[in-house]
Simulated assay, not measured.
Amino acid sequence: MARSYVAPLEASIHIDAPPAAVWAVLHDQRRMADFSEETYKQGFIGTPVREGTVSINLNKRKAAFWPTISRYTEVVPERRLAFRVIGPSATWSYDLEPAADGGTTVTERRRLTNDRAALASIVTARLLLGGVTNHDVELVQGMHDTLARLKAEVERG
């Protein structure tokens, strides 16, 4: 039986580099498709990314594609990057914490407004993505994969 997740979804990883090095890669959100399986294409209104920047996104899963629009809500250099996806009532964030060894712990989270997805998200998940629970399981795995790719890129330096 598939595990059902309660918001927020999250994953963390340790990167052997200081927050400034992680931020330099993460802040360039034009590269998110290099790290995230679900991100197919993005366009931005306002760059570099700062609070208020809007991104128009095309996401994918297998043969399914769907558009989203996001607004960046927090851009704190070397600490936090967050954006709210308009429609699904979801806020995605990346928190960077300096580690004692000089590295950085990065935590990716997805929070739903009032811990509930909007009706449009539930319908989309059911019709295109195999249901909310299945999509949540895939999102958590995707977070781990995204962070592993970010780690490899930063550590390759």
Rank of each mutant, 00 (worst) to 15 (best):
E153L: 08
A33F: 08
R84D: 15
G157T: 05
S55K: 06
E138M: 08
D28H: 12
N59V: 00
E153D: 12
F35G: 00
E138A: 13
N114C: 03
P67S: 13
I69V: 15
V85E: 12
R116W: 01
A118R: 10
R79F: 09
W66S: 07
I15C: 09
V76T: 15
G43S: 12
V140C: 03
E74V: 15
V25W: 00
L139I: 11
R61E: 11
A21T: 04
E38Y: 09
T107G: 09
D101Q: 02
T47G: 06
V6K: 15
L26Q: 05
G142P: 00
L127P: 02
T47Q: 12
K151Q: 06
E108R: 12
V123P: 02
T104N: 01
V54L: 12
N114T: 03
G142H: 00
A63F: 09
G157N: 08
A2V: 14
G87T: 13
T113S: 11
Q29F: 13
E38L: 10
L58N: 05
I122Y: 01
M1F: 04
L127G: 01
Y94V: 05
S89E: 14
R111Q: 08
M143F: 15
T47V: 07
V140S: 04
I13R: 07
V49I: 11
R31A: 04
R116P: 00
G87L: 12
S55L: 06
V140F: 06
V123Y: 04
P67E: 09
A21K: 08
L139H: 03
F65A: 05
A63Q: 10
E138N: 05
S36N: 13
D136T: 03
E10V: 02
D28R: 15
L112R: 05
P88W: 08
N134K: 03
E78C: 09
S36E: 10
T39P: 00
G46R: 06
D136K: 03
A90Q: 15
R79T: 13
T47M: 12
A7W: 11
S12L: 10
S12V: 12
L119P: 02
T124M: 14
V140Y: 05
T107Q: 06
A148M: 10
T105K: 14
S36C: 11
D34Y: 08
L9G: 04
M32S: 11
V140R: 05
T107S: 08
M32K: 07
A100H: 09
L96Q: 13
G52L: 03
S93D: 13
I122W: 02
G102N: 12
H135N: 14
F44Q: 07
G102D: 10
D145E: 10
D28E: 15
R111I: 01
Q141N: 13
E97T: 14
I15Y: 11
L129H: 04
E37M: 03
P88S: 14
R156P: 04
A117R: 03
V132M: 11
A117C: 01
T105G: 03
H14R: 15
R109D: 04
T124Y: 05
W66C: 08
R111W: 06
R3C: 04
